[in-house]
Computed example of a mutant assay.
Amino acid sequence: MKLNEMRNLSTEELYEQVREKKRELMDLRFQASIGQLAQNHRIRETKRTIARLLTVIREKQQAAE
Rank of each mutant, 00 (worst) to 15 (best):
L37R: 02
M6K: 02
R48M: 10
L25K: 03
Q61Y: 14
L53S: 01
K21A: 07
R52C: 08
T46H: 02
L54F: 05
T55N: 10
K21I: 00
K60R: 01
A64I: 05
R23M: 13
L54V: 06
R44Y: 11
V18D: 02
E20S: 11
R58V: 09
V18N: 00
V18Q: 00
Y15F: 10
L9N: 03
Q17W: 04
T11V: 05
K47V: 15
S33H: 11
R23T: 15
R52N: 15
L37S: 02
K2R: 12
E45K: 04
K2S: 10
K22H: 11
N4S: 12
Q31F: 05
E20A: 08
R19P: 04
D27F: 05
R23A: 15
L28P: 01
L54G: 04
I57Y: 01
E65Y: 13
E16R: 10
Q62A: 08
L14K: 02
V56C: 00
A63L: 05
Q31S: 11
E59P: 01
Y15D: 13
I50M: 00
Q36D: 11
A38Q: 09
S10R: 02
K22I: 05
R29A: 12
L53C: 02
F30P: 00
M1T: 07
N8I: 13
R29Y: 14
M6N: 01
R19I: 14
E65K: 15
R48P: 03
R19S: 08
K2N: 15
S33Y: 10
G35W: 04
R29M: 15
E12N: 13
T11A: 06
K21E: 12
R7W: 00
L28F: 03
L3E: 12
F30G: 06
V56L: 02
D27M: 08
I34E: 08
L37E: 01
R29N: 15
E45L: 07
R44D: 06
N40W: 10
T49N: 12
L25W: 00
M1S: 12
K60D: 04
E13D: 05
T46S: 03
A64T: 06
R23Q: 08
D27Q: 08
H41P: 00
I34T: 14
L37C: 04
L3S: 14
E65H: 11
K2Q: 13
N40M: 11
T11D: 12
R29C: 13
H41S: 05
L54I: 08
L28D: 03
L9I: 01
H41E: 15
Q36T: 12
R29G: 10
E65M: 10
E65P: 08
F30V: 12
R29I: 08
E16I: 06
L9G: 00
Y15E: 15
E12C: 08
A51G: 07
Q39A: 09
N4P: 05
R44P: 02
H41V: 05
T49K: 14
H41G: 03
Q17A: 13
E20P: 04
E20K: 14
K2L: 10
F30L: 13
Q31P: 02
L14G: 02
E5Q: 13
I43H: 03
A32R: 06
R44S: 13
I57N: 00
D27K: 02
I34K: 07
K47W: 09
N40R: 10
E65V: 13
R19T: 07
A38T: 15
L9S: 01
T11W: 06
T46F: 01
